[in-house]
Each structure stands twice: as C-alpha cells, then as structure tokens.
Design a protein around this nucleic acid. Structure first.
Lengths: 332, 332
DNA sequence: CTGAAAGCGCTTACAG
DNA sequence: CTGAAAGCGCTTACAG
C-alpha cells in the first residue's frame, strides 16, 4: 500500500544501477543525457517520488521547524502562525506546531522533543508560567545543542543570546496615551489582565511613564478585574481607558456599555483586539495593531536565514517591529 | 554540534556490538540484565537518544499526521486544532499543520506533499474553493495510496468513503429557530456569508424547513451583506435573526445596534461566535456552540484508531456531533 | 547471551 | 559515462 516505487525498482526495470538512477534524477553532470531521459521518463511513468525519510537520514537534516505557541485560541498567535506559514511555505522546511497551553512543563516537553533530532530549528513564544517563574534553563539548553532558536513576542528581560522578534510595547502605549490625550481625556486608567507577563509589564511601564496620577487596574482573574473596573467607572472620574490585552479590552468595552457611557463623549477606549473581528463589530474599538502576521513572517525569516547560512557565529538579532494605531468608534 | 552520541559510539565505548546496544536499550529479552544495566547507564550518562529519522526509516513509519486547515484565523479552526493536539499529544504521532487558505490549489499541494511519504495519516477540512468547485479527485487519490484520511466539518454531499466528523447543522438551525419562536419572534430572517459552503447550505435548509415566508439574506461579499441586511432591518418587519456564521453574526449584531434596536424586546439574534470572546463581550450573543474542540478530538481519535488497528477494511465512520445553544443577551 | 549481516531508501566519493 | 561500495543510524532475523 505504501509507495512501492523506489530507486531500486526503477534500476531493476531499466537494468542499470541504483546509483545511476539516483544521479539521473538529481541531474548529475556525470550521467549522459540519454540515460537521464530514460530514467526520468520511467520515474514519471511509475509515479516515483523519493522517500523523504531516507533523504533526511542521508542529508542529516529533518527539514522541519518546530514551533511552540502558548495558546492557539488567542487570535494573535493564530495570525503569527499564518505569517510563519507564509514564509516557510516557500522553503524546504515544514512547520510542526506544538501547543504549550501556557504551561512550563508542556513547554519543556516540546523543546525536549524538538532537541532530540526532530527539527532543524525552533520558533518559540514562551509560556506564561515560564515567564512568571523565569525558568529558562530548558531554552538555554537548546543553544548548547546547537539548534537555532528564535524567540517571539514575549522576550525575557535578561538577554539569553537568541534571536528575538518583538514589538515596541512600551512605545505603543505611549502613543495610545497620547492619542487619548488628543481626544481630551484627562483621567486615563490602565486595565490589564496580564500584569506579570513581560509584554504586560512593558505596556504598564509605558503608561506609568506618561501619567502623573496613575490608575492601574490589573488582575489575572477576569472576575476580579471586571469588578474593580466597574467600581472605578462608577466613581465617574475616568474618561479614558487603555487596555493591555484582548481580554481586558473586551471587558472594558463591555463595562462601558453596560454602564451606558457614551464612547468618545464620556469615555474613550483603546486596546488590543482581533483586527478582522473588530472590523465587523460594533462599536469598532480603537486598537493597537501589532501586525501579528508580520511578527510571524519576520521570525520565520530570521530562522531561515540562519539555517541557510553557512556561518556559525552570526550575532543574535533583536528585531523590534512597530505597531500602529487604528482608530475606531471608541475614541473618535 | 548535532547529537554525536549514537549506538555506534556507545558500542565502541563499551566494547560490545551495536546490535547488543540496540537490543539493550529496547529491553530485549535476549540480553542479560547485567549488560542492559551497563548500556543503559552509559546511554544516560552520554545523553543518548535515538535518531528519530533513522528509527522512522527502519520502521517505515513517519509518525506524523498531516492536518489541512482552511483558515487558521477562524477561531473555530483554532479550537479544532487544540482538540486535535490534545489527542495526538498522548500518542506517538506529531501534527504537521498546513494552511490551505481556502484555496484548492494550495490544498492540492498539501495533500500532494503528504502523500509522498511524509505522513501516516491525514485530517482535512476542505477549502471553500474545493467545496464550490466540487473537485475531489485529489482527495480520492489519497485513498488509492492507502493513507488513512479523516474529513471534518465540511463534508461533501456525495460520500467519498472517508471517515467524517461533522455537526448536525440542519438540526442546529431548527433548534435555533424554535428558540426564537419561543421568544415570540414572528418574522425570522436568515443571514449568511457562506451561501455556497456545505455547512451554509445545510443551515439554510434547516431554516427553510421551518419557515413559511422565508427571508434569506445571503452574500459572500460582506459589504453587500451588510447593505442588504440594513435595508431589511429598516423595513421594521423582522423581529428575529439567525446568522449562519461568525461574520454574519457580527454583522447582524452590529447592524442591530447601529439601528438602535433593543435586543430581545424589538429583535432577537442567534448565531455563531467564538465562545470565549463572546463571554467577555457586550452584548453576549446567543449562539450555537459547535464544540469545536470536541470535533478536533473526535477527528483525531478516529484517525488514531485506524492507524493503530491492524484491520484494513474497517468501514468508514460518519460521526455527527451535537451542538448546543447558549443563550446570551440577544434573545433572552 | 552476543554479534555479524542484511536491510530500511537514499546519496556520493571513488574506481573503472 | 556507469556501477560497486560505503554510509546515514537504526532494527531484527539469524548464527554461534
């Protein structure tokens, strides 16, 4: 039932050696055009295709890239994956995607599997748990094994010496803040469900840098976040909200509407959303577009460059991509 | 830089043969406990792990499952993937995920690649273009090659003889319609951005089966859909909407709010959404939950069963999973 | 209980 | 220009 056509079967049928068949199909200079023709014709006729596993063993390449994604249900990562796919698609490498589900243990298992000769390179966004516990030994191990690895999105503060692709989170929030200031917001609060995540911290830092009297509402527990947010809105002082992540943004939007506040007039909101869904929603939320697909493309490209390059000692790249602000109905 | 520890290197260091080392590590009965001990200890010390490519070549198994997903940015498919991951995770198989981006050409390329000995089995949801053109030769080819394949979500009308996992789309809409009837809706319209997709047709059929005076608003072009929807709402006759897909649902929600109509009182809406985002949104939209993760789990399980089974001629399974209705603010 | 040999399906120096 | 041989790293009948 498996592909029974092999170099051997072709060779036998043509009464020539396996090496000649192999060389013919690989267009070797050593072989006469006539023989090449014969071989190629039969190969086509029989529907031959080389056994990829055998080729990999011989070439000592897996031709696969391992990707670790913390949460596939977060549309941000889905778009990153799409970007990665677009780039690797045109290369000889395939993607094998593992989900860490934000678990350090799971992430270790992924990297362990990858490092056992299953992939030629790795793309990873570290899990929330990894981020919190600041445990990076399993990642550093990868360097010892000489497998190229590129980090994306959540980049540990202490440099680990890997290529990294991130977004200017700090600056993004500065811009968002200034945008709200321009809309005459005087009392801008910061709402986050990711207070411990690296990107969450950077965003909060951006906010804190801009304001004199900060109002930070930050809880991982969404119920608690919602409650506190609601209490704060009740006081009626806040006229601008910056949300630090998708969940916080949705909660802000929801809380404002439930309270019957008018967007832009009474209160403005800017946050993070899934761009395509936001486009169809009402109200359209003003948001910081991280261009996740571009993050994926850049991440994959850096890895491919490294894999294709013969040089061993290219210094680690630290790419910081720009976000843009898309203004919707919530701050116009 | 690659893993230089091999059976050979272990054998040399222990002054025994490669076969003995291999058998020891595989706990063969043939080898003395003492030798096994020695071998295992050294293997551990040297951090040996078998070269997976070599094992695969020998075992004639890729230990990989190919998955084709039409659109990773659709949260439905992201959740399906998560379900697939959960199941395959505990097996010896990895997932290699390809994105067809709703393109028939791309889908063919994926299947072509898979069928060249790159995977042991395939999970696929056909692309929109494939669905429209009803071109299934490339899928049928897979059967000829003897590679197990399981279809999910969009299942062609004409049976192709593959295992299939789908949802009771027709019945789902019947239930949704009855739900709206119970909320005293008298004029229920059906809104769809997927008029040609199999699941879209089934859903429309369900709607048509229930109503005497159908109002079907169906366009693939979202602008056109929006315009027509708006005109229909303007007439003021419709008091209930069933949306056939995520985009249509968001558009309905948006159109109703823009028009200032009161949910549940003046008009009710039920559709399809991303469950977790909907939970945080306002209003919470009443929706048909397809339990996408369960679809993924079931799909993967069927493939694993087939791969693990020795039998060749298990008849194709056609699994139809039930949806449930989750009532939100838009029809309470 | 251990090891030599063949083989999984390929590629590539090397000989002729 | 063609082919025999070795090798990629493993497993597994088979001999001893």
């Amino acid at each position: 039932m498996k592909n029974v056509v092999s170099l051997k079967s072709l060779a036998k049928e043509l009464n020539i050696s396996v090496s000649t068949v192999s060389k013919s199909l690989n267009d070797s200079e050593e072989i006469s055009d006539q023989t090449k023709e014969r071989v190629k014709n039969l190969a086509k006729l029989r529907g031959y295709s080389p056994n990829p596993i055998a080729v990999r063993l011989q070439k000592q390449e897996t031709m696969q890239i391992g990707v670790v994604v913390p949460n596939i249900e977060n549309p941000f990562f889905a778009s990153v994956l799409k970007g990665i796919d677009e780039v690797t698609n045109t290369s000889k490498y395939n993607i094998i995607t593992f989900l860490s589900n934000e678990s350090l243990k799971k992430e270790k298992e992924c990297l362990d599997y990858f490092s056992k000769g299953n992939v030629d390179g790795i793309l990873i966004c570290i899990a929330e748990e990894t981020n919190k516990k600041k445990t990076f030994d399993h990642i550093i191990d990868i360097k010892q094994k000489g497998i190229p690895l590129v980090l994306f999105d959540r980049i540990p503060m202490q440099p680990l010496g890997f290529d990294a692709v991130q977004v200017n989170d700090y600056d993004s929030i500065i811009s968002a803040y200034e945008h709200l200031e321009n809309k005459d917001c005087k009392n801008i609060a910061f709402v986050s469900s990711i207070p411990t995540l690296i990107v969450g911290r950077l965003r909060e830092d951006g906010y804190l840098a801009k304001t004199d009297n900060p109002t930070v509402i930050a809880f991982e527990d969404l119920n608690e976040l919602q409650r506190t947010l609601d209490e704060t809105l009740k006081e009626g002082k806040i006229d601008g909200l910056i949300a630090a992540d998708i969940d916080a943004t949705l909660l802000c939007n929801s809380a404002i509407q439930k309270r019957g506040l008018k967007f832009s007039e009474e209160i403005s909101l800017i946050g993070y959303v899934n761009a395509s869904q936001n486009e169809l929603s009402y109200p359209k939320i003003s948001f910081i577009d991280q261009h996740p697909k571009e993050i994926g493309k850049k991440t994959a490209q850096i890895l491919l460059d490294r894999l294709e390059s013969k040089e061993e000692n290219i210094p680690a790249k630290d790419v910081i991509l720009n976000t843009t602000i898309t203004i919707g109905d919530t701050s116009s």
